[in-house]
Amino acid sequence: MKFTSKLIEARLVKRYKRFFADAELADGTIVTAHCANTGAMAGIKDPGLKVWLSPSDNPKRKLKYTWEIVEADGQLIGTLPAKANALAEEAILAGALPELAGYARLRREVKYGENSRIDLLLEDDDRPPCWVEVKNVHWSRQPGLAEFPDGVTARGAKHLGELANQVAAGHRAVQLFVIQREDCQRLAFAADIDPHYAQSLTAAHTAGVEVLAYGCRVTPDAIDIAQALSVDIPGDRS
């Protein structure tokens, strides 16, 4: 997925009020960029980190810049959770995710469960529908290991329960993790941060929810899903 405009390199000054980030451009100018990530952003919000911003010429926007990429741990990392959905959709339509290939139709944001919307619904006349919930991952505390979540996510646990309900109804359900960095080979779940989510993930997997993880190649020109990661299911001794 190519960026529609050339990204601008800067240094992070601070991230604040969840939606804002101040960054220093090469000429010393301080600009405020939209931070479209309401999560904890553990490990990728420290002042002084190199960041890349996308500019916009839309006169209706309050902020000209959007924070797209950060360099941390010697690795370029995508910062926008919403981009994970777009990356997943692009890869599925291109047949780049073998486990999710071959469906005739793809729909976004379809209502299901209890006041929820599924990220992607894959449909085909010859097999049950496939409900795909997408989660963005950026965090790594150990070399080669991505972790989720970096903060408590009651909403994420709720989604796992709703995916399990789809399996019980005879459908297919997939929790897909998109890791917007290239240096990880495995995905694990941070029970020390959110034990309820880790427990919910195990319960959903036991109920038949498939868990997939894919890493991304990140450059200032594009972000693309690149490789499958192994997944460490909590409590799984198989």
Results as ranks from 00 to 15, higher is better:
D22N: 15
D124R: 11
L25Y: 10
C216F: 01
H34P: 06
N136D: 11
T79N: 05
Q199L: 13
A222S: 14
C184Y: 05
V137S: 00
K2R: 15
R107D: 14
L63F: 09
A94P: 07
C35G: 09
P55N: 14
T29A: 05
R18Y: 14
R18D: 13
Q166H: 14
G144E: 02
S56N: 11
R141E: 14
H34C: 08
R181Q: 08
R172C: 05
L201P: 04
N85Y: 13
D232V: 12
S230P: 01
R181I: 09
V218N: 03
Q199Y: 12
V31E: 08
A222C: 08
A36P: 06
G156V: 00
E147T: 15
A96N: 14
N115I: 06
N58W: 04
G102A: 06
L12P: 08
W139N: 02
P143H: 09
V209L: 06
L49N: 00
A23M: 10
D57W: 04
P220T: 03
G113Y: 03
N58P: 04
W131C: 02
E114G: 04
K158G: 10
G151T: 12
L97M: 07
P98V: 06
H171M: 07
G28Y: 15
D236R: 14
T153M: 08
A82C: 08
A86V: 02
S140V: 04
A42K: 14
R127Y: 00
V167A: 09
L80K: 03
A40L: 11
R108I: 02
I8W: 11
V132M: 03
A96D: 15
H171L: 07
D57Y: 04
F3N: 07
D194L: 10
I223E: 12
A72Q: 13
K17Y: 10
P149D: 10
S230F: 00
E90G: 02
P47S: 00
D57M: 04
V178N: 00
R18E: 13
A204E: 04
E24T: 08
A207H: 09
R117E: 04
F20R: 13
A191Q: 11
D73N: 15
D192E: 15
L163M: 07
K60G: 02
D221T: 13
K50Y: 08
A204I: 07
W67F: 06
A33M: 08
L163H: 03
V167W: 07
P128Q: 15
R61M: 01
E114L: 11
K50A: 13
A198Q: 04
R18S: 13
K62T: 05
G39C: 07
L160Y: 05
Y214S: 08
E89R: 15
D192G: 12
A21Q: 04
I223R: 09
N165K: 15
